[in-house]
Amino acid sequence: MNNKIWIALGILFLVTLGFEFTVLADYDSHWWNAIPAFYAIWGLAGCIVIIYVAKFISKKFLNRDIDYYDN
């Protein structure tokens, strides 16, 4: 993927991080707000967990041939 897009996404992330530390007045409504960049970590970790867990379960137990019910 184009480097420019990565740079744009990086800047966007820094902007959100900047907001988090400066402008946000109500940034203590939940316990996790004490962790910096919590939502980015949640998105990152959540996505990894979803992909690996879903992949594991489907490969191990659920995947079948496309005409499984016809046979």
Partner: peptide, 30 residues
Amino acid sequence: FVEIMQISLGTFVVFWYLREKLKGEIVMVL
């Protein structure tokens, strides 16, 4: 805004590096 952008950025980065794992196959999921 911060909440949704951070979550989406995190998701996008992981997707980009692991996207091969989600590639299409001819398969039926029970």
